[in-house]
């Protein structure tokens, strides 16, 4: 299948410090990729470059065949590149129904309407019900977000992202901060993501990575040092070195 999302020779430096160095990757619809790497590997910078929140020093980002390197973050979202946040960013005073309703309306270009309420728009409400139902949030549809549990807030993040009908979904540690008892629900939600959606998940929890990803990319010091099957990642010498530092290879250091 042709690539829906491509990153070519992406580079970014802050002063003399190269934080992302010549990163290239390509994703096809239906891909389930995990991006991992030790602290300071440049994962956050990579996400910011890809989403358009940070301009690259050089390189290109392509979305559905279109070069979007010069298009801002909002434009990229509208073209189908949607992200979720490592720490949930939800509107505390709004309800799950309002979150999903707003996302649906925004996607359809109707979020600027000055009259009416989405509660009275059957086609919007049908979609809102369906998504909240799917993620097990229907009961909480009209509660304020501040009143619902963190695990459920994480699920709502996913619902909001899906309401935007993305082609490519970037999940930034979707299970971070969720108590162990609730991670099952989130894993189920991840397993139920639309099959044609390309998903790139940034994650620390290796158990989750192995259950979710069909392909793993390891980023260290701004460079891709591994791109392959989950089964091979722990065997890779460079990956071990990156995670364990120079201790493992102390004898090789001149």
């Amino acid at each position: 299948m042709s690539a829906v999302f491509e990153v070519a020779n992406l580079k970014r430096s802050f002063g003399g410090l190269v934080v992302t160095n010549d990163v290239s990757l390509s994703m096809a619809p239906g891909d389930r990729i995990a991006l991992i790497g030790p602290n300071g590997a440049g994962k956050t910078t990579f996400v910011n470059l890809v989403t358009g929140n940070l301009p690259p020093s050089s390189g290109e980002v392509r979305l559905g065949g279109e070069t979007v390197t010069r298009i801002d973050a909002i434009g990229r979202v509208r073209r189908g590149l949607v992200r979720s946040f490592q720490v949930t960013r939800l509107f505390q005073d709004m309800t799950p129904a309002e979150h999903v309703g707003l996302a649906v309306l925004q996607r359809d270009g109707r979020a600027g309407r000055l009259f009416g309420s989405f509660l009275n728009m059957p086609e919007v409400m049908a979609e809102v019900s369906e998504l909240l139902e799917k993620l097990g949030l229907a009961e909480l549809a009209h509660r304020k977000v501040r009143e619902i549990a963190y695990g459920q807030q994480r699920l709502l993040e996913i619902a909001v992202a899906l309401a935007l009908k993305p082609k490519v979904l970037l999940l930034d540690e979707p299970a971070a901060g969720v108590p162990q008892s609730d991670t099952g629900r989130i894993e189920q939600a991840l397993a139920d993501l639309p099959p044609d959606l390309a998903v790139l998940m940034i994650e620390h929890d290796m158990d989750l990575v192995f259950r979710f990803a069909k392909r793993v990319i390891v980023l260290a010091a701004g460079t891709i040092i591994f791109d392959g099957l989950p089964a091979d990642v722990t065997k890779d010498a460079r990956v071990r070195e990156a995670y364990l530092g120079n201790y493992a290879n102390a004898s090789h250091v001149a």
């Binding site: 989403t51 973050a73 909002i74 979202v77 509208r78 949607v82 992200r83 946040f85 960013r89 939800l90 509107f91 707003l102 996302a103 925004q106 996607r107 979020a111 909001v160 935007l164």
Partner: peptide, 8 residues
């Protein structure tokens, strides 16, 4: 920022 991430 969240609103921007929703494409608005």
């Amino acid at each position: 920022l969240r609103i921007r991430a929703m494409g608005a």
